[in-house]
Design a protein around this nucleic acid. Structure first.
Lengths: 111, 111
DNA sequence: ATCGTATATCGCAATTTTACGATTAAAATA
DNA sequence: TATTTTAATCGTAAAATTGCGATATACGAT
């Protein structure tokens, strides 16, 4: 750990947690899958596809946006949401490495 | 999506969300790293290493255990926590695939 | 049998999350 | 200009999360 108690947690730990938190609800997974599936910006059809109220979806979109993994740009009366390529890559790198570390370490687990 | 509104979310979406939720706090990331780093069961030293009260850490351990990614077995007066190899692998598979899908799709993003 | 230690659980408070309907703002259309 | 449409925000309620100290439990050691 090499961390003083006072320092709380390091940036990497916080970032992994933050990105994980963005994915910590099935609706947000579904939104990301929709955005990936269509491979282009979709807008309010997210609302049609998911079993949640428009205001709730707007909140989930806001949560995803806060983490950086999606971006949204206003296009007239609609808003066009896309995956944010840089952050998707950051997420992929960071979570793949983390998961790999866990997998590797379990080979010498005691229980 | 191919999902009726009434069906809410599918099992895979729920499982990704559940595992992500387990990782959605820096303390829980730190705990997983500790368990991986030591490559064997550690017990209450988690409490010594982290800047949180014993009861709080016990709660975080419970959350991790609920997701399945760690297991704990009582060993006399102590409890020995380990990464759960099967679930770590499940997590690795599931999250790697999900991240990859996102990455691949961004190559034809419109914004 | 008693004491000390390790860990889980309880009770509580503060904060955050989730969800919804209602409202607002802004743009497109009639 | 008036109306409709899209999406964000507001207000609110219920539930979950986070954190802590205090307590309980259970085991090992004396």
């Amino acid at each position: 750990m090499a961390l003083n108690k006072a320092e709380l947690f390091d940036d990497k730990q916080k970032r992994i947690a933050e990105l994980s938190k963005a994915l910590a609800h099935p609706a947000r997974i579904a939104i990301l899958q929709l955005l990936a599936e269509r491979a282009n910006c979709i807008c309010g059809d997210i609302t049609d596809e998911l079993p949640l109220a428009q205001s709730t979806i707007s909140q989930h979109l806001k949560a995803l946006k806060k983490s950086g993994i999606i971006k949204g740009e206003v296009d007239g009366v609609r808003t066009c949401y896309c995956l944010n390529e840089e952050v998707v890559e950051e997420f992929n790198d960071i979570i793949t490495a983390f998961a790999q570390d866990l997998v590797i370490s379990t080979t010498q687990n005691c229980c």
